[in-house]
């Protein structure tokens, strides 16, 4: 899938396959464990709460086990590398920026956090000029505010410290 020149280096698909299969196995095991707690066998009152999830968890464990065996035996289809080093870095950059964005939402709410996020992404990832990035970020903030707060009457989170409080919202 990856066509980058450094595709020979990067994250191993096999390792991610194994980690994914282990994760799925854990979710399946949790479902089975919780089903047994609730009751998974047929009772005189009919099926208990754990009846259906028990089957789901068991099948998930089975499939995850199969994927694990395949991955360990290196029967992984597709490219050897999940992504190139450069591709992985770009993914990580967007991911970290998004995590920081949500942290900032917690503090100052959607409107200002979105404006900052837009400006930073356009400047850093989109290679746009500083003034243009700030301008577009501010315009987006105004658009989101007008659409949700005024138009749809769906108020968005204002944050622990509401920088737009002086507007009466």
């Amino acid at each position: 899938m990856s066509g980058s020149p450094d595709a020979s280096r990067g994250i191993s698909t096999r390792r991610v396959e194994i980690a994914t299969a282990l994760g799925l196995f854990c979710i399946g095991a949790l479902a089975v464990f919780d089903s047994l707690r609730l009751g998974a066998a047929w009772t005189s009152d009919g099926p208990p709460a754990g009846y259906f999830p028990f089957y789901i968890g068991s099948i998930l464990c089975l499939c995850a086990g199969l994927r694990l065996l395949r991955a360990r035996a290196d029967e992984v289809s597709g490219p050897k590398r999940l992504t190139s080093t450069a591709g992985g870095r770009r993914v990580l950059r967007v991911l970290v920026a998004s995590i920081v964005y949500v942290c900032v939402i917690e503090l100052i709410g959607f409107y200002v956090a979105s404006a900052i996020y837009f400006a930073v992404c356009l400047h850093g990832l989109g290679r746009r000029g500083r003034a243009a990035s700030i301008g577009i970020g501010s315009a987006v903030m105004a658009a989101i505010f007008l659409l949700f707060e005024v138009g749809l009457a769906v108020p968005l989170y204002q944050g622990l410290w509401n920088p737009l409080g002086f507007l009466g919202y």
């Binding site: 967007v94 998004s98 995590i99 949500v102 939402i105 917690e106 959607f110 990832l125």
Partner: peptide
């Protein structure tokens, strides 16, 4: 890269409006 922030912001707002919980935004991420 120019569209990426638009989609991220739209998804974050969308996830929040479902139940008005910031936890849902983290879940969405």
């Amino acid at each position: 890269a120019v569209f990426a922030p638009v989609v991220v912001v739209a998804c974050a707002i969308g996830a929040y409006t479902v139940r008005h919980e910031i936890f849902d935004v983290w879940l969405m991420l």
